[in-house]
Each structure stands twice: as structure tokens, then as C-alpha cells.
Write a protein that binds this DNA or RNA. Structure first.
Lengths: 230, 230
DNA sequence: CGAAATCTTGATTGAATTCAATCTAAGTGG
DNA sequence: CCACTTAGATTGAATTCAATCAAGATTTCG
């Protein structure tokens, strides 16, 4: 029984169409593409924000660091996602390619130019930012109040929901997952092992990055989502 | 020596002017005010979003709950702050008055109406949402990767920075602070005590809600902010 | 294949939570 | 005005969940 669970977290499609930009717009500003090797920086925190990016292929992590190297990954950007969109002139994150990644680049100023004239584009820009905010809000709840098991379960369901494929593929390392969930890589590994032993998921091909969710509703039970009303 | 520390976190002024709405706009849509008693709900999660609010007097907490009652406060809204601004039609949080609070109410649809025609208003709307996002991003770092002492220090500096007054007044309870910082109220109390014993801060009037920061730079040392570049 | 990186698992530690009293301040009503 | 109650804050002791420390196991890649 593969019952797909509908969660509060949206798939975050963030496709270009959301800009209201499909069609003519692409031609106007001339999209360029760029390939990033695994673990290379796409842009750094506090760098001037020149481009907005869309993941064509691969995966991206954006994160902040503390002075002693502690890292918090705020989001993973998967195929189709738009990232690096800033209101100020500088990036608030560092973005790195998790695996070899191809991204489309759009000049930030050209978007702003269109947004200033076109209310639809401007509205879509706001709605994309709001979606990011919504994700951040849910993630605060996870980081502030959820247990290790709940965090990992929520992460798997989020990835499952976003990729849409039958199996969940995790291009990122255990350390990346840990830094996204506010845990250590050992804890992530232990929780995944226990979920595997509990029969909730299976590692495919003996690959630890490719996971089959055997029972999404039971996995959802491991996560304890918010109630409708207080 | 009261050296004011400039941090990454902005004071979040979020004044009405940011809408580009001062002056005529106020007259056009007719602002109304409302008073909320301590601990009463202003709006609930998943309720339809009819109004946008601005704190005139008092303080507001907005939070999410898990089914078993665990609570994560995402933000405190102080005098001047605008909150309850949503892109979708429903609120993503519950908002409650921390103390007796007066808020200005603005019909959401009238803002949207103006935003659709006026690029400046629309831009300010985006910029306010981005500022909220920025706050959420910093808070994720705090919740995911900072120690108890760092969290409390960061909180005090944030409140100090936002209120701007000489002393920090904390209208919220220790439990509220704990639920904002992802800690327990006991831990918050212990850390505040230890900071007091260390001479970094002083409780005024024997009131535990009114605090003087004796040494902001030493307090900042207790927090370990992010570095400029990775 | 051998080396390096990543992942898993076990043992131990530790920071923060939980449990349990006080303590203090603010009401309340006789 | 003062006992009495209540809510909130502090402090201490015990517990626990996840972190840290430490090997191995497995995978990846030159």
C-alpha cells in the first residue's frame, strides 16, 4: 500500500513559470547555464547578488556558518527550484553544489526591471519568497522542538514529497542531512538504521543514498505534525 | 562604557512607512484599532487571513504547535512591527497578545488592491517579507546549532537592538523565551542567573522582566556570530 | 588494488531536560 | 492591612537524549 501522505510542506516547485516568465521572458533576458562540480561554491554569504539561479540538474545546499565552523543548512534546492533570490544586494547564504549541478542563471536586475512594471511578476516574486518563509517557519519548529527521530522522519517525507519519484534519493551526505536537521551525522545514521530495522524503509542497491519508503503513513507517525487548531 | 553593538539582525522596524503608505493611504482605507487582553488570541493558525496588524502598544507572540503541545514561537512582535501578513488566504501561525496590546488593523484585500497597482507598495511588501525571511534564517542557525548560553545571549542582544531603549524590558515569560529559543524555561532561568552572576547583566527593581545590559560586547562574546566568509 | 571518504555501530560523556522543591511577586478577599 | 492564594521564577538533583569519542565496515575513486 503506497499511500501518499499529504503534508503541510508543499513540494516547493518554484518553477520558472511561477515568475510568470515562461515564453517570451526567456528570450528577452537571455538565460545562460552553468555547470558546477561537486562541492564547489556557487555564491558565498555576503557576496553581491548578481544572479538568481534555477537548478536544472543536480542539487544545491545553502547554509550559514558560525565562526567555529558549526553549519546550519537552511535548505536543499532540487531540480526546478529557484534559489539565490535576494531583496538586498548581497546573498545571505553560501550556496554549494551537493553533486555535479547545472543551473540556469538569470540576471537579478532584469527580474527587478520586469517586476517593477509587471504586477503579475511582482506578485509571483512575493509568493515565492513567502513559500521560502513558510518552509523556514516549519523548519524552525523542527529545529526547536522535534526529537531526532521526528526530524529524520520529517526530512524523508519532505524529500519524498518534493522529488515525487517512487524512491527517495538522497544526493547529500549524512553530514549534510545532519547540518540540515540540527543533529550529528552519527545520530542521523543511527535513526536511519533503526527505521530500516523497523521495516519502515529499505536501502536500495546496497546504496545508502537510495531509499525506498515501505510505509509512509507509519513514517508520518514517527513525525508528529502540528494540529489544526490550538 | 555602553558600547552599542551592531549585529546582523536588524531592528526590524517594519513601520507603516515601509509600505509606502504613510499619509494619504491611511485615510483611504480607514485604519481601525483593537485592544487585546493579555494572553488572548489575535488570530489562529489556519484561520482565514482578513487583516494585517501593526502593534501600537504591547507585544505579540506568533507560534506553531505540535499535537502534544510543544510550542515554537517564531517571532515576537513589538511596538511598530507589522504581523499577520500572508500571501495565501490563511494564517500560518497563531498570534497572541503577550501583554495587553493595542493593534491597528488593516484589511488585507485593500493592501493587495494597492499593491497590484503601485509598484512601490508591492516592492515594500516584498521587502518586508524578505526581512521576515532573513530573521527566520538567522533563527534557524540559532535553533539548529547554538548552545543554550549563545541562544540567550543572542536573544538579549536582539531585544536590546530592537527596543533601542537603555534597558531591555522583557514583557514575555521565561516559558515564552524558552519556546522562542528551543529551550526549557529552567534552562533560560539558569543561563540568565549565570549571566547575572558573571556581571554581564542586572535585574532592575528586583523585577525579572527589566534587565540592564552592563557589558554588551561581553554579552556578544557569549554569542558566537557567523563569520564574514566561509 | 589501495587509499580516502563516507557510513555504521559501540561505548562513554555531557548539556540540557525533567522532576521536585522553594522562593518571590502580585493579587484577592476578609 | 494582612493572611492566603496563585503564577512565575529560581535552584537543586536525577535523568536522558543526543553528542562525542573511537573503532570498524563499506563505498568510491584514482
Amino acid at each position: 500500500m503506497f499511500v501518499r501522505i499529504t503534508t503541510d510542506r508543499r513540494p516547493q516547485p518554484n518553477t520558472l513559470d511561477e515568475f510568470g516568465l515562461a515564453g517570451t521572458f526567456n528570450r528577452i533576458i537571455g538565460l545562460s547555464e552553468f555547470k558546477y562540480r561537486k562541492d564547489t561554491e556557487i555564491f558565498g554569504e555576503k557576496e553581491p547578488a548578481v544572479y538568481v539561479y534555477q537548478v536544472k540538474h543536480g542539487a544545491v545546499r545553502s547554509y550559514k556558518l558560525l565562526s567555529d565552523g558549526r553549519r546550519q543548512i537552511a535548505a536543499f534546492h532540487l531540480v526546478g527550484d529557484i534559489f539565490g533570490i535576494e531583496n538586498g544586494n548581497t546573498h545571505r547564504f553560501t550556496a554549494e553544489a551537493v553533486v555535479e549541478t547545472v543551473a540556469r542563471l538569470i540576471k537579478r536586475e532584469s527580474i527587478q526591471l520586469v517586476a517593477a512594471r509587471d504586477a503579475v511578476v511582482s506578485h509571483n516574486l512575493l509568493s515565492m519568497t513567502t513559500r521560502n518563509l513558510e518552509h523556514a517557519e516549519n523548519h524552525m519548529l523542527l529545529l526547536g522542538r522535534k526529537t531526532a527521530v521526528e526530524r529524520v522522519a520529517a526530512f524523508l517525507l519532505e524529500m519524498d514529497c518534493r522529488t515525487g519519484a517512487d524512491n527517495v534519493s538522497l544526493p547529500m551526505t549524512r553530514r549534510d542531512i545532519a547540518d540540515y536537521l540540527g543533529l550529528t551525522l552519527e545520530t542521523v545514521s543511527r535513526v536511519l538504521s533503526s527505521l530500516r530495522k523497523a521495516g519502515v524503509l529499505t536501502f536500495l542497491d546496497g546504496d545508502q543514498r537510495e531509499i525506498m519508503l515501505n510505509d509512509r503513513s507509519r513514517l508520518a507517525d514517527f513525525d508528529r505534525q502540528e494540529p489544526a487548531r490550538p
